[in-house]
C-alpha cells in the first residue's frame, strides 16, 4: 500500500490545488521520511487519484513527445539556394521531377504505408479460401499481445514463424522457472537460417519496440528542478517536488495559464 508524506520544506499543511500522489517506489518518500518522520499521511485519506490516466493528460504526454522529436520547435523554411543545382533542370525524367518537387513529409509516407497495409489485410480477410502459405505481412503483433498469448511468435499473422519462435526472453514468469533456466537450445539449421534472412521487412510501425512488462511504475520528476515529483498540480497535472518549486510552477508554468 502506498504511503505518502509531506516533503521536508513544507510548512503549511497542504497546498491548495495540489495533491500528494502515492509514491511509486522510487525513493522519493523514503528519503523525505528520514527528515520528516511523524508527519505521515496516507494517500488514500486524501481520496485523490494517483496515476496520470485521463485522456487529456495522455494527449498532453503524446504532444510533448512529438514536440521533442521535432527538428525545430517551430516550422522553419530554409529554401534551397537558387544557384544550387538542387533545382529541377531540363533533362530530368518524369520520375526525378516528381520526386524533387514532392513536399511530402515522413508522416505523409507513413500514412500511405499504413493505408496500404490496411488494404492488404482487408483483401486477405475477404478472400473466401483459408489463408494458405506465405503471405507477406508487414504487421506484427504488439508486445502486449505477445505476452497475452504465450508461445506465439512476433509475426503470428505472417508466414508461420520460422523455427518455432519462443516466447519473449523477458523477465516474465520464465525467469523463475528453474527448468527453463538451464535450457540451452541448439543452433538453428541452415534451412531455418536461410528462411530467416529472406523474410520480408516489417513496416515502420511494426518494428517499434513495445512497452515494458506491466507493473513497472512510471517515475515522475519535478518539472522545475528535476528532483522526484511527489506533488501533482491539480490544475494541470504537472509534477513538482515541493512548495518551493510549486511557487515557480504557479508563477510561470502552470498550464492553467496556457489553456
Amino acid at each position: 500500500m502506498p504511503h505518502v508524506e509531506v516533503l521536508p520544506n513544507s510548512t503549511s499543511v497542504r497546498a491548495p490545488g495540489y495533491a500528494l500522489v502515492p509514491d511509486t517506489g522510487h525513493g522519493t518518500v523514503q528519503v523525505a521520511a528520514q527528515q520528516t518522520s511523524g508527519r505521515k499521511r496516507a494517500a488514500r485519506s486524501l481520496g485523490l487519484p494517483g496515476g496520470d490516466t485521463t485522456v487529456r493528460q495522455q494527449n498532453a504526454v503524446l504532444k510533448h513527445l512529438a514536440e521533442l522529436d521535432k527538428d525545430s520547435h517551430r516550422d522553419v523554411q530554409v529554401p534551397v539556394p537558387k544557384d544550387s543545382a538542387g533545382r529541377v533542370s531540363k533533362k530530368t525524367t518524369p520520375n526525378v521531377r516528381r520526386i524533387l518537387m514532392s513536399q511530402k513529409t515522413f508522416a505523409n509516407h507513413l500514412a500511405d504505408e499504413e493505408a496500404a497495409i490496411a488494404q492488404q489485410q482487408q483483401a486477405r480477410q475477404s478472400a473466401t479460401t483459408p489463408r494458405t502459405k506465405i503471405v507477406p505481412d508487414l504487421k506484427r503483433a504488439s508486445t502486449s499481445e505477445l505476452r497475452a498469448i504465450p508461445g506465439s511468435g512476433p509475426s503470428q499473422n505472417a508466414a508461420k514463424p520460422i523455427g518455432g519462435l519462443p516466447p519473449a526472453p523477458n523477465r516474465d514468469p520464465l525467469d523463475d522457472d528453474p527448468l527453463l533456466k538451464s535450457y540451452v537450445p541448439s543452433a538453428p539449421s541452415e534451412e531455418v537460417m536461410e528462411a530467416l534472412v529472406s523474410g520480408p521487412p516489417l513496416s515502420y510501425n511494426a518494428a517499434r519496440a513495445g512497452p515494458p512488462p506491466a507493473g513497472k511504475p512510471q517515475r515522475h520528476f519535478c518539472e522545475i528542478c528535476g528532483y522526484w515529483g511527489a506533488v501533482k498540480c491539480m490544475k494541470c497535472g504537472a509534477r513538482v517536488c515541493g512548495l518551493e518549486c510549486k511557487g515557480a510552477h504557479d508563477d510561470g508554468r502552470c498550464l492553467k495559464f496556457y489553456a
Partner: peptide
C-alpha cells in the same frame, strides 16, 4: 531483448 524474441532461441 525484444529483438531476440523474434529469433529462434538457438
Amino acid at each position: 531483448l525484444q529483438s531476440l524474441s523474434g529469433l529462434p532461441p538457438g
